[in-house]
């Protein structure tokens, strides 16, 4: 695939995670979701995180995305220590640096595609034009449609456009193709790799769809709250070349 070279060890790490643990306590039940995870990601890396349900991958993504707090360990984003910040600092972090893409799109149904993107660009520090973001995901002709008038794949691409319009340093995607069929899923993955290449945002994609691992620079496998393996793909495939 034509894309810029995989980030090298010279690039500074975007994320530095050390000894990350998360313990959920609901009543008398304790669940150890993460057990001392160490992790790093560099600028522009496209990382696929695999793992079965309950392996801790979503908890990991939530903590590095500033949606949840750790029980112990450190998480650094550039020079911000996320594990030290309160709600306001985490909100600031999400607002300025993180783009999210979710399995269920989470679009605002009362806003059109363009307006959903504008929702974010209005509060971002150095946003791109909503139209530009939508063009990057190939939705220039559907900008004034409401979510209910778009297909699932189109809705997910709007969500991607919304995530990248703020020019985030990191793009976090939790099962972005989970609710989509293979054909539509490929289109969404294309959008993700395209914007990764164009914007240079470090991209973390959670999936339990093994086929997707081939489009990544790196594949991280979670199991039982720890990282089982962390492999660099020697060769990446284009999304169009994978199927499931």
């Amino acid at each position: 695939m034509e894309d810029r070279a995989a980030p090298t060890g010279i690039d500074p790490p975007v994320f530095r995670v050390r000894g990350l643990s998360k313990l959920y306590r609901t009543g008398e039940i304790e669940v150890q979701a993460l057990r001392g995870v160490d992790f790093q990601a560099r600028t522009g890396e496209f990382i696929v995180i695999l793992g079965p349900s309950g392996s801790g991958k979503s908890t990991f993504l939530n903590i590095v995305g500033g949606l949840d707090t750790a029980t112990s360990g450190d998480v650094w984003f550039m020079d911000h220590e996320l594990t030290r910040g309160g709600d306001a600092a985490l909100t600031r972090y999400r607002r300025d640096h993180v783009g999210f893409v979710f399995q269920f799109y989470n679009l605002v149904p009362s806003l059109t595609a363009r307006e959903n993107v504008r929702l974010v660009t209005e509060i971002a520090r150095r946003p791109m034009a909503p139209e530009e973001a939508l063009a990057m995901v190939g939705l220039s002709d559907r900008m004034d449609h409401f979510p209910a008038q778009l297909s699932g794949g189109e809705q997910q691409r709007v969500a991607i456009a919304r995530a990248i319009a703020k020019r985030p340093e990191v793009l976090l995607c939790d099962e972005p193709t989970g609710a989509l069929d293979s054909h539509t899923g490929v289109k969404v993955l294309e959008a993700l790799t395209d914007v990764n290449a164009a914007v240079g945002a470090t991209t973390l994609v959670i999936t339990h769809n093994v086929a997707i691992r081939e489009i990544a620079h790196r594949v991280v496998r979670f199991a039982n709250g720890t990282i089982l393996s962390d492999e660099v793909n020697a060769t990446r495939k284009a999304p169009a070349e994978v199927s499931w």
Partner: peptide, 14 residues
């Protein structure tokens, strides 16, 4: 609630 929580995720403050 759902919509509002989504906005919180996107970086909207409380």
């Amino acid at each position: 609630g759902r919509e509002l929580a989504s906005l919180r995720v996107l970086g909207f403050t409380r």
